[in-house]
C-alpha cells in the first residue's frame, strides 16, 4: 500500500463509503437468496463476518510464503476450510436456520467479497489490519443483509424474527401481505432503494 491508512478507517470505511454490497456491488447473489426472512439474514451475516475475518488473518500470515501463481488456490483452500467449520457449527447449534440457508453457506466460498478482500487487502497487509478489514467488510455486508431482510420479512410475511408484528386488526380490515416481497426480484429492488438513499446522502459517490 502506497499510503498509510489508519486501522480505524480500514475497519469503518466498508460500513458506508466503501460498502461491499451497495458501492462495490459484490455478493448480490446471496443478498437476494437468503433475505426473505430476517433470521437467516442475520445468521448469514455473522457467518460471513467470521469467515472473512479469519481467512483474512490466515492469508495475511501466509502472504510472504504463498507463490504468486497458485495464490488463488491457496486462498480457496483456506476459505473452504473455514466455511466447512462454520457450516458444521450451524448444523450443530441452529439446525433450522442452516436448513433455510441450505446451499448458501457453502456458497460463501464463491462470494466475491471474500476473494476480493483476500486479493486486495490480506495479500498486502499485516494480520491485525487484515483482521479489521475482514470484520469491517463482513459487517458492511451484514448491515445490508439485515436491512433487506427486515423489510422483506415485515412487508412479505408481516413478522419479524418469526414474531407477528403487523396487528391482526389490519388483516381484519383487508390488509394482505405482499407476496412479491418473498420473491427474489423484490430483494433486488430493495437493494436498489438502499443504493438510492445512500447515493443521495453521499453526493461524492454519484457517477455522472
Amino acid at each position: 500500500m502506497a499510503e498509510k491508512i489508519s486501522n480505524k478507517s480500514v475497519m469503518l470505511n466498508p460500513f458506508s463509503k466503501n460498502n461491499p454490497v451497495i458501492v462495490q456491488i459484490l455478493g448480490i447473489c446471496s443478498v437476494l437468496a437468503v433475505t426473505a426472512k430476517l433470521e437467516p439474514a442475520i445468521v448469514m451475516g455473522i457467518s460471513v463476518i467470521a469467515v472473512l475475518a479469519f481467512s483474512n488473518v490466515i492469508i495475511s500470515l501466509l502472504r510472504n510464503t504463498i507463490p504468486t501463481n497458485i495464490r488463488i488456490i491457496v486462498q480457496l483452500v483456506v476459505v473452504a476450510g473455514l466455511v466447512v467449520i462454520v457450516d458444521q457449527l450451524l448444523k450443530a447449534y441452529t439446525y433450522d436456520v442452516s436448513k433455510q440457508l441450505s446451499v448458501f453457506i457453502g456458497l460463501i466460498i464463491t462470494n466475491c467479497i471474500l476473494m476480493g478482500r483476500l486479493e486486495a487487502f490480506a495479500m498486502a497487509n499485516k494480520p491485525w489490519p487484515s483482521f479489521l478489514d475482514g470484520v469491517g467488510n463482513g459487517i458492511g455486508y451484514a448491515i445490508i443483509l439485515i436491512i433487506v431482510g427486515f423489510f422483506r420479512e415485515l412487508l412479505g410475511s408481516g413478522t419479524l424474527l418469526g414474531y407477528q408484528v403487523i396487528p391482526q386488526w389490519c388483516y381484519d380490515h383487508g390488509y394482505v401481505n405482499n407476496g412479491l416481497m418473498i420473491l427474489p426480484p423484490m430483494a433486488l429492488i430493495v437493494v436498489g432503494c438502499i443504493i438510492w438513499v445512500h447515493r443521495s446522502r453521499n453526493k461524492d459517490l454519484q457517477e455522472n
Binding site: V176, N178, G179, L180, M181, L183
Partner: peptide, 10 residues
C-alpha cells in the same frame, strides 16, 4: 403484474 404476483390470492 405487481398485483398478480404480490397478491395472488386476491
Amino acid at each position: 403484474a405487481f398485483l398478480f404476483f404480490a397478491y395472488p390470492a386476491q
